[in-house]
């Protein structure tokens, strides 16, 4: 199977005065998994909905396998498997029936349909549930059927919108395993996520988006190499929730601090430049501010550091 391509050109989406996506340009080609990374509200889902013609662009257009989605939705989506926003399947359907409908509408030959459905159900570990009603399934099980539906026609391009979001830790791990296994086939996978570890674990390349703008698109190897010595980040846990103005004000102005990410109300990830010397001063300063620091540990992901610095900087 030849691998697919996605081209997004000057894609802009405005909702009233709010600019959800601002002249996004991105070209993906070949057999690989590209993570579409960004914080909540960055414009990831908006971009993927535009890419699948669920919403309409204010400006620009996108192509799948060289076919304009906006002009020829049907042809463009013919060789794409799509999972956007955890869709619901008609609850009285069984996975076999739902996948039969999808395969039928997608033109999978009747002679191959049954085998293909069994294969994708096995791929998402749902082979034993093929004849149970979907309405009784857990969220994780439904999501696996949705992934199966995106794969039932053996597409060149797979578009996944935060496939593990809303699942419990086990469900998230299972979905990651499924997506990782998809890479064994010759496919272009474009997967949005706001979970850095997920992207690091699964993807070959990453496109970072914030406030509707593409901040960078590169291979994970290059991103890792880009983080030079002296850059670092630490996770700090406080005894009590920290007022937001303390993080954005006092801590942000400490020497060497390059960015701050609130992991939870009582937990911050702080990026800094300057190596161990600055890290030592940072710890002293935080303790001296009497904010109730109970632990400080190094966070090691290079992608996290880049994410932290670029998102916080508002590039």
């Amino acid at each position: 199977m030849a691998s697919g391509s996605i081209r997004i050109a000057g894609l802009t989406k405005r909702f009233g005065s709010f600019v959800a996506l601002d002249h996004l340009n991105l070209t993906l080609e070949g057999s690989k998994c590209v993570g579409f990374l960004g914080p909540n509200g960055a414009g990831k889902t908006t971009a993927l909905k535009l890419l699948t013609d669920m919403i309409f662009p204010t400006e620009g257009e996108c192509e799948i396998n060289g076919i304009s989605v906006q002009k020829e939705r049907k042809r463009a989506l013919a060789d794409a498997g799509v999972l956007i926003e955890s869709p619901e399947i008609y609850p009285s359907m069984t996975p076999n029936e739902a996948l039969e409908m999808v395969a039928d509408l997608r033109g999978v030959p009747a002679s191959e349909r049954k085998d293909r459905i069994q294969a994708v159900l096995a791929e998402v570990k749902m082979a034993d549930w093929g004849n149970q009603k979907v309405g009784r399934f857990s969220k994780g099980m439904k999501q696996r059927i949705n992934i199966a539906a995106a794969l039932v026609h053996d597409p060149q391009v797979v578009i996944l919108d935060e496939p593990s979001t809303g699942l419990d830790p086990r469900g998230m791990a299972e979905v990651r395993t499924i997506v990782r296994d998809l890479k064994k086939s010759d496919r272009l996978i474009f997967m949005s996520s706001h979970i850095l570890s997920e992207v690091t674990e699964i993807c070959d390349e990453v496109a970072l988006i914030d406030h509707g703008k593409l901040l960078f698109y590169d291979t994970l190897n290059n991103v890792t190499a880009r983080v030079s010595e002296g850059h670092g980040s630490v996770d700090v846990v406080f005894a009590r929730p920290l007022p937001p103005e303390v993080a954005s004000g006092q801590i942000r102005t400490l020497t060497g601090v390059t960015g701050i990410l609130a992991l939870s109300p009582d937990r911050l990830r702080i990026g800094f430049d300057g190596g161990r010397a600055i890290q030592e001063k940072l710890l002293e300063s935080l303790v001296g501010m009497h904010l109730g620091v109970v632990s400080l540990t190094e966070s090691e992901s290079a992608l996290e550091e880049v994410y932290l610095s670029r998102i916080s900087r508002g590039d």
């Binding site: 013609d53 926003e85 869709p87």
Partner: peptide, 10 residues
């Protein structure tokens, strides 16, 4: 959200 299931199809 059943529409999201159908509208991803060609």
């Amino acid at each position: 959200k059943t529409g999201y299931f159908l509208m991803g199809l060609p």
